[in-house]
Amino acid sequence: MMEIHENQILTSEEGEILQEIMNIAFGKSAADLADVIDTHVVLSIPFIKIMQVTELPMYIREHVKDYKKISIVEQNFWGRFKGDALLVFSSGSGKELIAMLQHGPGEISSFESDPIDILERETLMEVGNILIGACVGKLAELLKDVVTYTPPMVVVERYYTDALSERQFDVDKTAIVLKTDFSFTEGNVSGFLFLVTNNDSIKWLKEALRIFIEQYE
């Protein structure tokens, strides 16, 4: 599942350790998510790829092109491990999630005139916040880091080309992309999670991986 090029930012051993840590982190996330949102979540084995940031929009586009429309929840996280989490939901996910989480209409009120759209936004934001928190949080925890998050931003039901061209990524040379796809067993919801970190985090990551594996040597 590991693919590394771009002048070997991580050694192959570091790559394998990171992959194993991701497997563990995401396994725990899925289990805890089931408890928090009361539904079984399937998280695929995360796929790690290192690339230039400029290639990123194209890469993401390539993965979501089967979706006509998408919704995106985006959140920055920062600890010593820092970056940007992008959660891409397939079209219609918002409505499925509303049904799944059984949001009562009384829970939310708003100035705006369209309660369904507001509810959809709110639900995507909530689930996005939890999914990102679960994946990033568990990963950071295994690497003995503590991260905090910015409030999630959300783009609802856009054509994927529009939604992605608006994204602007830090042109800081390299991105580690951790991609996982997820689905909920109850309900027709699926999507991808991309974690994009930059050069700042790589030095720390290499050190954290070394400390992690030292326990086993």
């Binding site: 805890d32 408890d35 949102i37 989480l101 909530e126 916040n129 949080g137 568990k138 503590v146 998050y149």
Partner: peptide, 14 residues
Amino acid sequence: RSCKSVFSFGNFCF
């Protein structure tokens, strides 16, 4: 749910 998620994952809810 928000409380559970903060306790399990250490994230922030808004």
